[in-house]
Design a protein around this nucleic acid. Structure first.
Length: 291
DNA sequence: AGTCAGGCAACGC
DNA sequence: GCGTTGCCTGAC
């Protein structure tokens, strides 16, 4: 097995690979030291295993064949200072959060993988989501190898559709198996065109289509729009950000009203903004609820 | 042993 | 519209 050449990539400023990969956007990267450098390995979509190492805030390293893909995946193909310039001024909690974890970026995931993973995330903790993702990959994905260790791509809708609901249920999915199976069938059969949805410029239109899928409500659809389709104005509300908005922003409203307030407050890149308070809360208060 | 967790759909009012 | 409930499973 010949070594794949490694190249250096600029991050364009403070960037933290580990925090970004562990910020609840993706659930399958594994720590992997390669070529004398600490980093992480996983498959991006159905491609062979990728490896990314970090040598400093300004530099990451990866396989030569992956450089464009990695930059796009990690959101490093955008000027983040422009994004942050759209954040609200005078929001002390947001500023504190950004100061605490300035190296986090919004990842641009393959849409199907993103949708499928978030369908399985319903009412689950991060460790469970990781375990489910790994099981599904091992059983239905393609195997690749790096330094003698196996990595598996996420199965495409057809492969998952062939597996069927009962087999998926055996991946410890519980009631989520039905939703995942139906989504895979719908996409594999062409009834749902996930690539067309990704191309839509209007996130509301895309959300409308995504929520037609069984088991996909506003929360999951918004995660797909933000983490998969690049709609950085989309603001997913999970229990974490809801907690933050309640305790730090004194918001007692819920659902669509809270959504509307958040988008107005955090601006055209509200989705990017919410990642900092969520990660700050995670990193500083990893345990119990804060009421 | 029970409770609860990074939701959703179905139902009741 | 708004609140309640069942749903699989594993960690605490």
């Amino acid at each position: 097995m010949s070594e794949i050449p490694i190249v250096s990539l600029p991050t364009g400023g403070s960037f933290d690979l580990e925090q970004t990969l562990n910020s609840g956007q993706v659930f399958h990267w594994e720590a992997h030291r390669h070529a004398g450098t600490d980093g992480f390995a996983a498959c991006i979509g159905d491609a062979p295993v990728s490896w990314i190492g970090q040598t400093g805030a300004e530099e990451i390293v990866t396989f030569e064949r992956d450089k464009e893909k990695v930059l796009r995946y990690l959101g490093l193909d955008h000027d983040y200072s422009e994004i942050r310039a759209t954040f609200p001024e005078g929001d002390e909690f947001l500023e504190k959060s950004i100061a605490y974890c300035p190296g986090i970026r919004i990842i641009r995931q393959p849409t199907w993988e993103c949708l499928a993973t978030f369908i399985t995330s319903s009412l689950k903790q991060v460790a469970h989501i990781r375990a489910i993702s790994l099981t599904i990959r091992e059983r239905y994905g393609n195997r690749y190898e790096l330094d003698g260790k196996s990595y598996y791509s996420y199965p495409d809708p057809s492969a998952m559709s062939v597996a069927g609901e009962e087999a998926l249920r055996k991946c410890a999915l519980g009631y989520r198996a039905k939703s995942l199976d139906l989504a895979a069938n719908s996409i594999a059969s062409g009834e749902t065109d996930i690539e067309a949805i990704e191309q839509l410029e209007d996130p509301d239109e895309a959300r409308e289509l995504l929520t037609k899928l069984h088991g996909v409500g506003d929360k999951i659809a918004n995660c797909v729009l933000l983490f998969g389709c690049g709609h950085w104005g989309t603001f997913p509300i999970d229990v974490w950000i809801e907690r933050v908005l309640r305790t730090q922003y004194r918001k007692r409203i819920k659902g669509a009203k809270l959504q509307a307030w958040a988008v107005k407050h955090f601006g055209p890149n509200a989705g990017c903004a919410q990642q900092y308070p969520v990660s700050y809360t995670h990193l500083t208060l990893p345990t119990k609820r804060i009421v």
